Amino acid sequence: MGEAGRGNDGGTICVLLSFPFIFSPCLGCQASTPEYAFTVVASITVYGAAWLLLHLQGSPHMGSTQDVYDQLGVQDVPVFRNLSLLVVGIGAVFSLLFHLGTREGRRRQAEEPDERSPLLAPATARPLLLWKHWLREPAFYQVGLLYMSTRLIVNLSQTYMAMYLTYSLNLPKKFIATIPLVMYLSGFLSSFLLKPVNKCIGRNMTYFVGLLVILAFAAWVALADELGVAVYVVAVLLGTGCATILVTSLAMTADLIGPHTHSGAFVYGAMSFSDKVANGLAVMAIQSLHPCS
């Protein structure tokens, strides 16, 4: 009990020290510092490493046992163990390089008021919108429902994609790495088109177009008996549609907050909480209706 208690205390301390940095910009970063590019590189690295490990794990086996090693099973436990160790190791190395090689700039001190500084705020200042005021805004619930629904589509499709590929389509296990990679790349590339599309047709129509793409994916998957090579095409449709509705819903959330950034954390926290609860309930419902054999 004593060892377990000390381990629990250590974990609590680690969470307390690290969790606040999730919602903070990186130390030493400025407004012009690109953050999204290396997120893409990291995700591609994970999918690429998964494909390589699965490919190497199955390559030595030939003959009648090839089909066995093409399917996901208990023999792949070392593969995912090595993948997790590889990802954590690479992350630790680059985190160490970041902390050792990044210099923190000095923060500018706030200007001291002088005799020319106004004593009162200007009359055109916007009213302060506190967290409890959001509960009386209908748009808060509308955007929250939209964001929650978006997260349901994106998260559930990613959660059950591996099961669909291996158990429904009976595809080799390497597809659980290549198909998510195709989805991610297609979503990343389509995100560059969202800004001009938003200017042309607006956010609402952009979101509707993303939904149409996802409906095309769902109809194709539901009606087709076998996909074959077309599995890559439907992966592109799903990745493009999910990226479109996710980015657009985040933009709508930012539009909702607008200038009231002091209470924006409550808005993002409330929507994140609702989508986590909804996803948990959805997974429980799916597992109860279609339990794994």
Rank of each mutant, 00 (worst) to 15 (best):
Y141I: 03
C26Q: 07
V213D: 07
S186V: 01
E115F: 09
F266N: 04
G258P: 01
P34N: 03
L54Q: 02
Y207E: 00
R136S: 15
L52R: 02
L52M: 08
I90M: 14
R106E: 10
F94Y: 12
P78K: 04
D9V: 05
H133A: 09
Y207C: 02
V40N: 14
V40W: 15
V40C: 15
L145C: 11
A270V: 15
T12F: 08
Y184S: 02
P25Y: 04
A50K: 10
S24L: 10
T39M: 11
G280V: 01
G11S: 04
G280W: 06
L281P: 00
K276E: 06
G210I: 05
Y147Q: 10
H61A: 05
A37V: 12
F188L: 00
I153V: 14
A224Q: 10
A123D: 14
P138Q: 01
V74L: 15
A216Y: 06
L181M: 15
S249I: 03
P25A: 04
G5A: 14
V234P: 02
P118M: 04
L238Q: 12
I201C: 12
G10A: 11
M62N: 04
P60F: 08
L128M: 12
P25Q: 05
A251Q: 12
G228I: 02
T166N: 07
V15F: 13
E137H: 04
C242E: 13
G105A: 11
S64T: 13
L289A: 15
P180H: 09
D70W: 02
W131L: 05
A31K: 01
V283D: 06
F94S: 11
S186W: 03
S288Q: 14
L237H: 07
N279C: 10
M284E: 13
G258L: 01
E112G: 07
T261P: 00
L120D: 07
R81H: 12
P291C: 08
H55R: 10
G91K: 07
F266P: 00
Q75R: 01
L96C: 12
P60L: 05
L100A: 13
L130M: 13
G28C: 06
E3A: 14
L194G: 06
E226I: 03
V93N: 06
V283R: 07
Y69Q: 01
T124S: 15
L96V: 10
P122Y: 10
S191D: 09
S190M: 15
M148F: 05
V15A: 12
E137Q: 08
R106N: 11
V79A: 08
R203K: 15
A222T: 12
E115L: 07
F273Q: 10
V213L: 15
V68D: 02
Y147A: 13
M252G: 03
S293E: 11
A270W: 13
I257R: 09
L130G: 11
V87T: 13
L152T: 07
N155L: 08
L146N: 01
Y36F: 09
A251W: 03
V88A: 15
I13V: 09
T253V: 12
G91L: 14
A243K: 04
Y47T: 00
A282K: 03
V209N: 05
R116C: 08
R103G: 09
D225G: 13
I44M: 15
A4Q: 00
L145W: 03
P138T: 00
M252H: 05
L17T: 05
A265M: 06
S32E: 12
T166D: 03
P118D: 07
Y141S: 00
T102H: 08
T65F: 00
S293C: 12
A282I: 04
M62I: 03
V87P: 04
K195D: 07
G58Y: 08
G63R: 09
